[in-house]
Simulated assay, not measured.
Amino acid sequence: MPSNPKLQAYINGKIQPYEDVVLHISDLSIQRGYGVFDFFKVQDGQPVFMKDYLERFNESARLMELQVPLTEKELADTIYQLITINNLPISGIKMILTGGYSGNGYDPAEPNLLIQQLPLLLPAPDIVAQGLKVITHDHVREMPRVKTINYAMGIRLIKQIQKAGASDVLYQKNGVVSEFPRCNFFIVTQDDTIVTPSEDVLLGVTRKNALALAGKNYKTEERTITIAEIATAKEAFLTSTTKRILPIVQVDNVIIGNGKPGAVTMGLLQDLIDLEKKL
Rank of each mutant, 00 (worst) to 15 (best):
M1A: 12
G13T: 12
G13Y: 13
I15M: 10
Y18Q: 08
V21K: 04
V21S: 01
V22D: 14
I25Y: 11
S26G: 15
D27R: 01
D27F: 02
L28I: 06
Y34Q: 13
Y34F: 15
G35V: 02
D38W: 05
F39A: 09
G45D: 10
P47M: 05
Y53S: 11
E55Y: 12
E55I: 15
F57H: 04
N58C: 14
R62M: 14
E65K: 10
V68A: 01
P69N: 01
P69Q: 04
T71G: 15
K73H: 15
Q81S: 09
I83N: 10
T84P: 08
N86A: 12
N86C: 01
P89R: 03
I93R: 00
M95E: 15
L97V: 06
Y101D: 13
S102Q: 05
S102D: 08
G103I: 03
G105M: 06
G105C: 03
D107E: 08
P108L: 00
P108K: 01
N112W: 07
N112Q: 07
I115P: 04
Q116A: 09
L118G: 02
L120W: 12
L121C: 03
P123S: 11
A124R: 00
A124E: 06
V128S: 06
Q130K: 12
L132G: 01
R141Y: 01
P144W: 07
K147E: 02
Y151N: 08
A152K: 11
M153K: 11
G154D: 03
G154Q: 08
I155S: 11
L157D: 06
I158N: 14
I158R: 02
K159I: 00
K159G: 04
I161V: 14
Q162S: 05
K163Q: 14
A164F: 01
A164M: 09
G165D: 14
V169H: 02
Y171V: 02
Q172S: 07
Q172I: 00
Q172M: 04
V177F: 13
S178F: 01
E179N: 02
E179P: 05
E179W: 14
R182H: 13
N184I: 10
F185C: 01
F185Q: 09
V188D: 00
Q190I: 02
D191W: 11
D191Q: 15
D192G: 00
T193Y: 05
E199P: 03
D200R: 02
V201G: 07
L202S: 04
G204K: 04
N209W: 06
A210P: 10
A212N: 09
L213W: 00
A214D: 10
K216M: 06
N217G: 08
K219G: 03
E222H: 07
T224Q: 13
I225R: 03
T232V: 05
T232N: 14
E235S: 03
F237A: 12
L238C: 13
T239Q: 02
T241H: 04
K243Y: 12
R244Q: 13
P247I: 05
P247L: 02
D252K: 13
N258Y: 01
N258H: 04
A263H: 09
V264Q: 07
V264T: 07
T265W: 04
M266F: 09
G267W: 01
L268I: 10
L272G: 10
D274H: 10
D274A: 12
D274M: 12
K277P: 06
